[in-house]
Amino acid sequence: MSTCATASRDLDEPLAGTAATARTWLLVEQPGPWGAKALTSSHLDPEIGRALESAAEGTGVRVALIRRPGRHADCHAPTRHRVYVAHTVPGRSWLRSEVTDDPRRLLDLDFAALGAGDHGGFGTPHTGAPLALVCTNGKRDRCCALLGRPLAAELAAAGEEGAWEITHLGGHRFSPTLLVLPYGYAYGRAGTHAVKEILEAVRGGRVISDGCRGNSAWERPAQAAELAVRTATGEDGAGALTVVGTDGAAPRWEVAVAHTDGRRWQVTVEQGASQPPRPESCGAALKSPARMDVVAVRPVP
């Protein structure tokens, strides 16, 4: 049976510029089943889920649920919740964590400050393995379950301590999708061997561009522009490049990308429509989803 991921792969739909956007991620461990809108349809108190969504709105913070790979019993047993907060702007990224018995305490966080990169002393710095967060929410799209859950399980079986399942990363048709922290780069159509290479690179402070959808800190045109500069220059340092300006509006932008060594590039990005039409998720009507096409990468003297 054909799936949205199969159609996207067969049509070679580009991945660059398709990552979910969030300068900061707030990840709350919640075992058990997840509904399509997991923050309000899981064993997390839906009142807390709605309040977290409301608190994060417009702040640059994105809230998601995570759980360890494996079978998820439908039980209501109280549990301690591992919480991660990660800021993903290159050169200023950080990842911190704590364990809480009461997720309601997270509503006391200053979400505007978190979005701006100020953790306010939350938790402690994460010093363990990089996080590989694989989207597995089959209630959103079956591809996330069919392709995401086996990947998460394989990573865990291979000893990747940072492997987690996550509720939603967008782009079901690029399944299996994952977000890698602390640097905030998202990937699509990921296999186990490729993810292990990605995580090994992260341990060395590097970014692998193959299969990359972009850095969540940037809007879609800037994601594509930064990846284009990485491809053109071979630069793989995680904090080496930053987007310093984006001018224009759909369907054309000029994006300024800067290197820590002082080099700069002007990148022209145009929005196109993917052809022929394809489903953006399983069972959805055929559409021509927007794509980010880089048409020029010019060094700035």
Results as ranks from 00 to 15, higher is better:
Leu169Ile: 07
Arg140Gly: 15
Leu146Asn: 12
Ala156Gly: 09
Lys139Arg: 15
Glu154Phe: 14
Ala156Arg: 15
Cys143Phe: 11
Cys144Thr: 00
Cys144Asp: 01
Thr167Lys: 06
Cys143Gln: 06
Gly148Tyr: 01
Ala158Tyr: 04
Gly148Pro: 06
Gly162Val: 02
Glu165Asn: 07
Thr167Tyr: 09
Arg140Ala: 10
Gly162Ile: 03
Leu169Glu: 03
Gly148Thr: 02
Trp164Arg: 02
Thr167Arg: 09
Leu146Pro: 10
Gly162Pro: 03
Ala153Gln: 12
Ile166Cys: 06
Arg142Ile: 13
Cys143Leu: 14
Ala158His: 08
Gly148Phe: 00
Arg149Lys: 14
Gly162Asn: 09
Leu169Tyr: 06
Ala145Leu: 15
Ala153Phe: 08
Leu155Ala: 10
Trp164Met: 00
Pro150Gly: 11
Glu160Ile: 09
Leu146Asp: 12
Glu160Ser: 07
Arg149Pro: 04
Leu147Glu: 09
Glu165Met: 05
Glu160Gly: 08
Ala157Glu: 15
Gly159Met: 04
Glu161Trp: 05
Ala163Gln: 03
Glu165Lys: 04
Glu161Phe: 06
Ala145Gly: 13
Leu151Cys: 05
Ala163Leu: 07
Arg140Cys: 09
Leu169Cys: 07
Glu161Pro: 05
Ala158Val: 09
Leu155Met: 08
Ala153Asn: 15
Pro150Ile: 05
Leu151Arg: 01
Glu161Lys: 13
Gly148Lys: 01
Ala157Asp: 15
Arg142Gly: 05
Ala153Ser: 14
Leu169Gly: 03
Leu155Tyr: 01
Thr167Ser: 15
Gly138Asp: 08
Leu147Ile: 04
Glu154Gln: 15
Arg149Thr: 14
Ala158Thr: 07
Glu160Met: 08
Leu147Val: 04
Ile166Asp: 00
Gly159Asn: 04
Ala152Thr: 05
His168Gly: 07
Leu151Lys: 02
Leu147Tyr: 09
Ala156Glu: 12
